[in-house]
């Protein structure tokens, strides 16, 4: 499941490098956060235990590791893949679940604040494309079901 989303050969090198470690904002500021441990376990095929860990949600997706990486890969990719597996199994931080549900329902993460707009004399907000997006997303899901 994880192997399909990741390049394990690159991660093997990644687990021995750490060029990004000292620049990763979470590594620097959050005690106990070290994606190299997660990556070593991914390479060893022993990653299930990380799915329930809050560590995999501490990657801020700032892309700094990607820029520092000699392979332009970065441990961000490993963390994204872990989170994708976790969410498929229904393991979400509450806010991610809430955010996803709002997105799925409206195509947005929040609606324009109308009273404040009026007070500030802002023009009416442009129409949302949420309904159209929902229709093509339904087509995508249908296509997936067809591919089984």
């Amino acid at each position: 499941m994880l192997g399909a989303a990741l390049n394990i050969k690159l991660l093997e090198m990644c687990s021995k490098c750490g060029a990004c470690y000292s620049i990763c904002p979470s590594c620097v500021n959050l005690p106990g956060y070290d994606p190299r441990e997660v990556i070593q376990d991914i390479v060893a095929g022993d990653w299930e235990k990380w799915l329930l860990s809050k560590s995999i949600w501490q990657c801020l997706e700032c892309h700094y590791c990607l820029e520092m990486c000699y392979q332009h890969y970065g441990f961000e990719n490993a963390m994204t893949a872990m989170r994708a597996v976790a969410t498929k199994r229904g393991i979400f931080p509450v806010q991610v679940k809430r955010g996803w549900e709002m997105f799925a329902k409206t195509g947005k993460l929040g609606e324009p604040a109308m009273p404040a707009r009026k007070k500030m004399n802002l023009p009416a907000p442009a129409a949302s494309g949420g309904e159209e997006l929902k229709k093509i997303y339904a087509l995508l899901k249908e296509k997936r079901r067809g591919q089984g």
């Binding site: 997706e61 994204t80 989170r83 994708a84 969410t87 991610v96 955010g99 996803w100 997105f103 195509g107 947005k108 993460l109 023009p123 907000p125 442009a126 129409a127 949302s128 494309g129 949420g130 159209e132 997006l133 093509i136 997303y137 995508l140 997936r144």
Partner: peptide
Amino acid sequence: DVDGFTCCPEKSLVNNVDHAAFVL
């Protein structure tokens, strides 16, 4: 202003759940 935009979508909420939805 253009009618019809949606959420960009936000990476950490959407891409982590469904990459194809993020791209679409």
